[in-house]
Amino acid sequence: MADNKRRIRFKSIALVEAVIILILTLLLIWAAFIRGRDKAVPANASVKKDIRRRAVIEKEETFYQLDGKKILMNDGTYGEVFVPVYADVPASTINLDELTMRNGYAYYKENGEVVSTTGVDVSEFQGEIDWEQVKQADIDFAFIRVGYRTYGDGIVTYDSAFQRNIEGALDAGIKVGVYFYSQATDADEAIAEADAVIDALADYKITYPVVYDWEIVHDAARTDNVSVEALADCCVAFCERVKDSGYTPMVYQNTGTAMHKLDLPRIKDYDFWLAEYAEKPSYYYDFKIWQYSNTGRVPGIEGDVDLNICFRPYDGKIKETEKNT
């Protein structure tokens, strides 16, 4: 009988202890929650810059359209895939129904009238060019390569045919823009490339843009591991340097790299030159020039050459100098 009473007393004590532990646990959880709420920082509160480093995540809501609009693309592994639409990057206004092909050239019409111009882009790989024949073949403009940075050693090098090509095109009455083939890995290298272009143009008048052409080589290149942020830094650094010198900057890129590698909101203020070899472009965002073929044929140029259409001709808003006036 005494043993039963002791057991009952011990059980009562254990039950009371369990209740006390439960109450203390609940109090601790409640206190932690209240204290955490007091220390929480509102979304619109100011915080130190060295704490908030996830800029892309913070901008995501303003970057993407809230209506859920998507761009459909084809992927070699997954088939049809989608990416959300940037709300603050201008969409293309080109009416694809007004885009036609005739005799290998692309034309764009508005109100029944052709408003586009036709052009080529060339380098030393095209060899000796008869620019008079090119002009007679209804080529309105040409982008001349100024130079390139080697993808192995990273050495800035001038195109061996640059002077011959730019002078030949200008003398033939063809409007000229230029481009630099970049393998920059940071903004300082991109600025050095822009300076090389500006120096090369000192004695010439051009009427089309100065173009930043950064490309992925896929051959153990120095740019293989360039980050999205670093690439955007390079684009901005080059374009701003060019703009400060009085020229119109432009970024050249193919559709895949533009959609998956370029930070488009950061370069949206620069004209865009699209490379997409197809009957009609599928790129969603705004572009001024479309490179639609790398196997074009033009009298005066031996072999294949890139063909381009400019939807709004440039009219001399770019820096002019004394030569070739």
Rank of each mutant, 00 (worst) to 15 (best):
A2W: 12
R6E: 14
A14W: 00
I20A: 14
I21N: 08
L28E: 04
I29L: 11
P42L: 10
K48G: 00
I51V: 14
R54D: 15
K59D: 12
K59Q: 08
E60G: 06
Q65H: 11
D67A: 03
M73T: 07
G76I: 10
T77M: 12
Y78K: 15
V81N: 07
V81W: 09
V85T: 15
V85K: 13
Y86A: 10
P90W: 01
T93R: 11
N95V: 04
L96W: 11
L99N: 09
N103M: 05
G104K: 05
Y105Q: 12
Y105L: 14
G112T: 07
V114R: 01
V114E: 15
T118F: 13
G119R: 00
E128D: 15
W131Q: 10
Q133S: 15
Q133L: 15
V134P: 01
F143S: 01
G154F: 00
V156K: 06
V156N: 13
Y158D: 11
Y158I: 11
D159R: 02
I166P: 00
A169G: 04
Y179F: 12
Y179I: 04
Y179A: 01
A187H: 04
E189I: 04
A192L: 10
A196R: 01
D199N: 14
V217A: 09
V217W: 00
H218S: 13
A220D: 15
N225S: 13
V228F: 14
F238K: 05
R241W: 05
K243W: 08
S245E: 13
G246Y: 06
P249R: 00
V251N: 08
T255K: 14
T255A: 08
A258H: 01
M259D: 13
H260K: 12
K261M: 11
D263A: 10
A278D: 14
E279M: 08
K288L: 10
N294L: 00
V298K: 03
I309H: 01
C310P: 07
I318V: 14
K319S: 11
